[in-house]
């Protein structure tokens, strides 16, 4: 076929294009992923029993700040990476800020505590539940994020997959925080931070397979 024939075909009756659809689709995906993740936690695990106390509220707020920070920054970069060439304009080290902040706070809180408490503060009571829950809850938000990115056109598939995993991991951690009663900053830094990083690595590994177009 001649390229001119293809050009004629494509340019006959072109539809006007909605220019905000990339960003909007990603926000819809984020909202849907959050609803699913929160729903899974409410139904499957239940809200922490001391939910209404002031102490629980403060620690829930700390965990949510960390997770929301991760999700917010990751989403900003994901909207860029979803477009062709977006990886050129996106130096993505800023997304490490919430992780650095929580590690710093964790180190400070360990510094103020006697070293005999350290292992309890880091390991907590439910570390295994956290390690399993965050990645499992992240599966559906990750699938939705991949669906949204596939509607756009990423050209750096590993990195885009990593950021989709980061968003999903952050959403999952947000939801899991509603249930989790391990209230120490080192616990949040190690197990929340670690599982979100795990989701990011899984996303990077899966990106080239899932995002080809």
């Amino acid at each position: 076929m001649k390229t001119d024939d293809l050009v004629a075909l494509l340019s006959t009756n072109p539809e006007p294009v909605d220019r905000s659809s990339v960003v909007r689709t990603l926000f819809v995906a984020l909202a849907a992923g959050t609803i699913v993740a929160v729903g899974v936690v409410l139904v499957g695990l239940g809200v922490r029993s001391d939910f209404m106390t002031a102490r629980a509220f403060i620690f829930l707020a700390v965990k949510l700040c960390f997770a929301v920070g991760v999700v917010g920054l990751a989403l900003v970069y994901l909207t860029r990476l979803a477009r062709p060439g977006g990886e050129r304009a996106a130096p993505s080290f800023v997304v490490t800020m919430p992780f650095l902040a929580i590690v710093l706070l964790a180190a400070i809180s360990l510094g103020f505590a006697p070293s005999s408490h350290w292992s309890k503060m880091i390991v907590g009571d439910e570390w295994l539940e956290c390690v399993l829950s965050v990645p499992i809850i992240a599966i559906v938000p990750f699938a939705i994020a991949i669906w949204a990115v596939r509607r756009a056109a990423p050209t750096d598939l590993s990195r885009t997959g990593a950021f989709a995993g980061l968003v999903a991991g952050g959403v999952s951690a947000m939801a899991y925080a509603l249930h989790c009663t391990d209230d120490s900053l080192p616990f949040v830094a190690v197990w929340y931070g670690g599982t979100i990083v795990l989701c990011t690595l899984a996303g990077a590994a899966l990106g080239p397979r899932l995002l080809r177009w």
């Binding site: 494509l10 294009v17 220019r19 990339v22 477009r83 062709p84 056109a153 177009w213």
Partner: peptide
């Protein structure tokens, strides 16, 4: 053509 909605003006 298919991905023209991903162009940011």
């Amino acid at each position: 053509h298919i991905k023209r909605h991903t162009y940011n003006p």
